[in-house]
Write a protein that binds this DNA or RNA. Structure first.
Lengths: 380, 380
DNA sequence: TGTGCTTCCGAAAACGATTAAGAGAACGAT
DNA sequence: ATCGTTCTCTTAATCGTTTTCGGAAGCACA
């Protein structure tokens, strides 16, 4: 669009490429834009400058009008807004970000030990909720990665700085990774999920309480020989184990060392094998708790292959409350982590931290889960 | 960092905030930067200008050196690169994007009818693979949404333009949504997953072939009374149904109308109900095919509640090959869609389209799935 | 008439990068 | 001595915003 404006006393002549000539009086009453609007709509983006030319005002005025500054006359503002709309104006994100140092973009970092990525039930569910909340507040979500660009690999922190994330959320991470630590320590607002780091905002699933409730339930059903196959070492695992031991103590429950075993999370094979070993014990448990629902599937297979029935012959319990576990037979007794609330809380806490850093108290918020009573734990 | 440089003949005096004074000769041999590096590292970002001051060259030279332009002397370039590294320089993404009109950011739009969001097994798996491939090529992933900012809601296209995505990928979408159509029709490079739109790049799971292979397998196991509960209307469903009817015709298989039923995808409740009705037929089917593995769970529950065994009394088959279906009893016979390849192909096709639009042929690529033989279809 | 206050708007300087065009030196060839 | 080349590097414009500061006009009041 080639606009040539020859400024006269109070009048501009605007010549559009089409050859049509429009007069735009520098007064309160300005006509609808039509030709320009059409042209801008097809050929790239209209900018503040384009609008300013059509409206016969300065770029600054257009900017202020669109941003509802108070020092613009009402008529002018409304006219500018109307023209902007007609021209299909969209602010240029990069220019705005460059000037304001705000991107309204949140970085998400997620790496789990199994590299399951987005297919991780728990994480994808938390992320989904996080995303919805963030979007409701006008923020976008971009994944952090050790991105390689022309200059070679960038660390997580470098990538975050490069993209200019207003804040970042970290979940299911290997928190011993130096790059992760570097990112948490940085001055970028951060919230961690399921991990407590020094003085950082954190949202945590109540693993201690969840295991306690589950164990108490199983105990209440009459079980006394309870095995626990826990996940690989991590803060989540540590919490669950602590909850387990603490509750056992409270219940004055004797747990033989052989009943405490380890299997990686979401690892059906190991769970299968360990379950077999537990069943082969001289005094096998009457109930087995698994690291998660998925691992429980492996155990269930081992049990069924021996011709044993659940829960008549042996009871099992999972953790997570994934849909498959709740819907499929045997309906698993499990602890459903409140992923919706975890994601939502993480997002709103992070947003508060980004927008009102001064008045925001750094806190660690624990979100309780819910015991889901299936049919996999028998009463005895 | 306050740098005051008084240019003399060929020498600059640089006064850092710390008060230390460094002399930087405008010749080939330039010393290591130390104090500056330290300061820049803590206080915000170093810019090209900061580097140029330390190195005693112009901003343009720094830019070109870092971008490996050929018109910069080797010594100069290496010195600039070294200093940039020491100062922890990171290019400013917004500034670069503003100037170059490239963001190296890909927009992802995903909305399914059930609003299952990221928890959708199939999609999250495709997305995960897409993301890995994109990242490998230096692209980031951001979600498209009808984002609301200060000016109210933006359409998908407006949001994409605003963020300046270099390209977008659309999956599992309601392709009748006017906003989606508007986005596909736009001049932004786009690739659709599992949907064919006019002359756009598309990556499709081979639903026709998948259903055909599944039905042929079931037929081969001796079944003749085969019911098909298909998903809600969509192009995927249409393809599967077409594949079903076509194959039935090839096999000269008679399918009573009562055997063809509908249930929403991933809807265990409806699948449960419809399964019951199928079992109540005077001549019930010997095998039921479900819209997906998840829906099959609902059907399996209905079957088991009637005291029937799988596969001894009735056979079932799923679709998708989600982990739970493959690991849990009864191990489901299903068609595993090749999500890894679908995501990877979509990403590489989109990248090619963005980077070499002229030489890229718009094509529709069909990715075959794999029959996963479980134990849920009996031989009779 | 001069003064002070409001209201509305514009000029111009950023933000940090990229890049076209050109300038100056060094060098060899004529 | 002059010219053309090649190699480096600089100047300056530009991308599209935001924001500070100040100016002009209008009005009320002394």
């Amino acid at each position: 669009m080639d606009i040539i404006d020859k400024k006269t006393k109070n009048m501009k002549m605007i010549v559009a490429k089409s050859g049509k000539v429009m007069y735009s009086r520098n007064t309160k009453t300005i006509k609808h834009c039509t030709i320009q609007a059409q042209e801008e709509r097809v050929s790239g983006m209209a900018s503040l400058k384009d609008i300013s030319k059509v409206c016969g005002v300065s770029v600054a005025t257009v900017s202020k009008a669109l941003n509802n500054h108070t020092d613009i006359g009402e008529e002018t503002r409304e006219n500018i807004k109307r023209v902007a709309k007609e021209m299909g104006y969209l602010p240029n994100f990069s220019a705005r970000a460059l000037k304001t140092n705000r991107t309204y973009d949140i970085g998400v970092l997620f790496v789990d030990e199994a590299m399951s990525g987005l297919t991780h039930d728990y994480f994808s569910s938390v992320l989904d909720s996080f995303k919805r909340t963030a979007e409701k507040h006008g923020y976008d979500i971009t994944f952090i990665n050790g991105c390689k660009n022309r200059e070679g690999r960038m660390s997580y922190l470098e990538h975050s700085r490069y993209r200019g994330f207003d804040g970042v959320v970290l979940a299911c991470i290997d928190f011993s990774d130096p790059e992760v630590i570097e990112l948490i320590r940085s001055n970028i607002p951060v919230v961690t999920v399921d991990y407590l780091f020094n003085n950082r905002m954190a949202v945590l699933s109540d693993n201690v309480g969840g295991i306690r409730e589950l164990l108490r339930y199983i105990y209440g059903r009459g079980h006394r020989r309870i095995a626990y196959i826990h996940g690989a070492d991590s803060s989540v695992t540590q919490n669950r184990l602590a909850g387990f031991y603490k509750t056992a103590e409270e219940l004055e429950l004797e747990i033989p060392a052989a009943y405490i075993r380890e299997a990686a999370y979401r690892d059906t094979k190991t769970a299968y094998a360990v379950t077999g070993e537990l069943l082969d014990l001289p005094k096998p448990p009457t109930c087995i708790m698994y690291p998660d629902d998925f691992a429980a599937f492996g155990g269930i297979n081992a049990i069924r292959e021996r011709g044993m029935r659940i829960p008549e012959d042996i009871s099992v319990a999972g953790y997570d409350g994934i849909p498959a576990a709740i819907h499929l037979e045997p309906r698993l007794t499990t602890v459903k982590q409140n992923t919706e609330q975890i994601g939502r809380t993480a997002a709103s806490q992070l947003i508060r931290l980004m927008e009102k850093p001064k008045t925001t108290i750094i806190e660690q918020i624990v979100i309780p889960g819910d015991l889901v009573e299936g049919k996999s734990v028998a009463g005895i």
